[in-house]
Nucleic acid binder design. Structure first.
Lengths: 195, 195
DNA sequence: AAAACTCCGTAACAAGCGTTACGGTAACAT
DNA sequence: ATGTTACCGTAACGCTTGTTACGGAGTTTT
């Protein structure tokens, strides 16, 4: 069992190396050798842990989803009110510091890689539909008297906005500082009547 | 002169081939040979037209910017009112049909490629700052009595939202049909007081 | 203690990449 | 008609890629 636990830990370390390469060198340089170098091992270990490069990418993609989901659920559980939960969850989806900016770049890299990979795009769609449902649930809790279509429309506007500003800020952090993103979010919540 | 015109036309055709490959095969398969095949020529022509692969990508990226700018300016000029202009310009940035969905995928591909390329990311930033300024100008015209910070915050929310929904819809067109995107846009404009 | 087994680094392989060099063809000039 | 030049397809080069095969070191089993 310590064997399989170590195996799983190595898989996680390699997935983190995938994220690092994706964030710092981009999708085009995301090679098995670059991942091995970032993980501090050789390509031999990588290929003994995963049957091929695609399996490594799929694992890293799945782990990215699970990691963000845990973080989001912790934020949601710790929030004092439905509206605070909504704001906290939306806020973490933006790129407001170097770490979350890295997450956005990695997310964009996987999205670009998914264009040519059916399995990757399938994972992306499943994860994103979960994400959207969560947003709708949070909006519904924050505005209990809204009809369903209003909830859906506003939730879509909010997740699109945060996803979009994360992409914008990831590509140009200097032009989109954290406080501007937060003002944008608060202004939108206030405009929708969720402030 | 017909010589240089033909040369420019070939450059455009090759850039369009770059867009096609990027939209249909993704960034990882964006090779010189794939572009040549999509353009119906050989790699020899490509390399005689551009000094190297990067120059081809940079040209395609620049042409993408100019093309969208012309389309946006035509929409803006044809709009009957500032608010109609704002809505029309924002609307074209979403992915509401196969063509605009393709544009979004191509845009995402270039963004992912820019992570590792200083010149590409420089172009992206310049173009995106132009885009943001246009949005601020349109918002200011649609709400003449707003203070500057309100204009900036709302314009940021709007471009982030359209950019984000374009990415979401590009990756999962079935989940984000055109009418949902339009309702989202109209609800946001109404919430901001720009309906 | 020897044998068997697991694990992983090393080195090689074929395939595909960007790029270069060559050669022929067509248009123009003389 | 002949020489010249521009153009581009063909074929090759060196390099990097994903993947495979081998071999040795450490651990467990008998």
């Amino acid at each position: 069992m310590s064997l399989s636990a170590d195996r799983a830990a190595q898989g996680e370390a390699l997935s983190r190396a995938v994220w690092d390469v994706l964030a710092q060198q981009g999708l085009e340089k995301l090679t098995v050798r670059a991942v091995a170098a970032a993980a501090g091992c050789t390509t031999g270990l990588v290929m003994h842990r995963f049957p091929n490069r695609r399996a490594l990418l799929l694992h890293a993609r799945q782990l990215l989803h699970e990691t963000t989901r845990e973080r989001v659920e912790a934020l949601e559980a710790a929030a004092p009110s439905p509206r605070a939960a909504l704001r906290a969850v939306l806020r973490q989806g933006m790129a407001t510091d170097p770490e979350s900016t890295n997450w956005s770049i990695v997310w964009l890299g996987f999205l670009a890689a998914a264009v040519a990979d059916d399995e990757l795009i399938g994972m992306h769609r499943r994860n994103n539909r979960d994400w959207r449902q969560r947003a709708e649930r949070l909006v519904a809790a924050a505005a209990p008297d809204w009809p369903a279509d209003r909830v859906g429309t506003v939730a879509l506007g909010l997740i699109a906005m945060t996803e979009g500003v994360a992409a914008l800020a990831a590509a140009d952090p200097a032009a989109y500082p954290a406080d501007e993103q937060e003002r944008m979010l608060d202004a939108a919540l206030a405009a929708y009547g969720l402030g």
